[in-house]
Computed example of a mutant assay.
Amino acid sequence: MIEICQAELEDAKELLAIYAPYVEETAITFEYEVPSLDDFRERMREIMRFYPYLVAKRDGAIIGYAYASAFHERAAYQWSAEVTIYLAKAARGQGLGRKLYQELETYLKQMGVLNLNACIASTSKEDAHLTNASQKFHEALGYHLVGCFHKTGYKFERWYDMIWMEKALGEHTTPPKALRSFHEILGEENDFRRL
């Protein structure tokens, strides 16, 4: 059984172990160096102040995570969020990514987020470091391509493109409803869901 729950800062070591191969072996992230545990934990802390940060567990072990973060710091962008997901290699291709994103979207919709944005490394010629599986995954979940920045990231002695994809979560009313934090929608309740 898969359990999806809120991440805790104590999970940072397990999450970093999932993320590290993406840095070292792929162009999925344009980072060159695996962040330190302290830096990674600080990234988590910053995101968790307002947005959901979810982990998927199987038999108590974390096998994937997904979170939302601010799309841009300016106030007018507050109804848009950037979404991110990473799965352990052994957990890919089992529908876990879909479940994590569906849970994330449920929370974001309750918060009042209207636009989901995904920044994805892309390539015209797939190689050992990058396929376009992430784009296909997002397309299957209703995301649409809205832009491509050509030869934006240089890694593994190759130039890669970066694309933006988006998905609308709700109606764009005028004025929009006030945005609420993840913590506001949870209240004091610790929400755990089993799928």
Rank of each mutant, 00 (worst) to 15 (best):
I18A: 13
Y154L: 10
K89M: 08
H183P: 08
M48S: 08
A17Q: 13
V113T: 11
A81Q: 05
S69H: 06
F192N: 09
E10D: 11
G64F: 04
F71S: 01
E105F: 05
E8M: 05
E166W: 10
A12D: 02
E157R: 14
L169P: 00
Q110F: 09
V146S: 13
A133C: 14
M1R: 13
Y77M: 02
R194Q: 12
H150G: 11
E46P: 11
I63F: 07
F30T: 01
Y53K: 12
L87G: 01
F71C: 04
I185K: 15
L16K: 02
V55G: 01
E10F: 07
Y19C: 03
E33R: 11
C119M: 13
R45Q: 11
D127A: 02
E189I: 13
A128P: 05
K57D: 03
I120Y: 08
L104A: 00
S80I: 06
Y65H: 09
L195E: 15
L15A: 02
M165V: 08
C5P: 04
T29H: 01
H129W: 05
V55A: 03
E10V: 09
A121V: 00
M1N: 15
L169M: 10
A128M: 05
Q94G: 12
N115I: 11
I63E: 06
N115T: 12
N190T: 12
D38Q: 07
E171Q: 15
A178L: 14
R74A: 06
I85S: 03
T29A: 04
Y22D: 04
Y22M: 00
D161K: 06
I62Q: 00
E171R: 14
F30M: 02
T131F: 04
E105I: 04
W159K: 10
L179W: 02
P21Y: 03
L141D: 13
A121S: 07
R194N: 12
G93P: 06
A75Q: 15
G97H: 01
E103R: 10
R158T: 06
R58I: 11
Y86C: 03
K151H: 13
I4C: 08
L15P: 04
A168I: 09
P175A: 01
G142R: 07
A88L: 01
S69D: 07
R158Y: 03
Y53M: 11
A20S: 06
R49V: 09
L195D: 15
R193C: 15
I62K: 02
P176E: 02
G95W: 08
G147Y: 09
P21A: 01
Q94R: 14
K89F: 09
L195F: 15
K99Q: 14
R194H: 13
E10M: 09
R74I: 06
Y19V: 02
A17N: 13
L96E: 08
F149M: 12
I28F: 10
N117K: 11
S69K: 11
I62A: 03
Y32A: 15
P52I: 05
A7H: 00
I62M: 06
V34T: 09
R41P: 06
Y154E: 06
V34F: 08
A66K: 07
R74Y: 08
R180W: 07
K155M: 15
A12C: 05
C148Q: 15
P175M: 00
P21V: 02
P35N: 07
T123L: 02
E157P: 13
V55K: 01
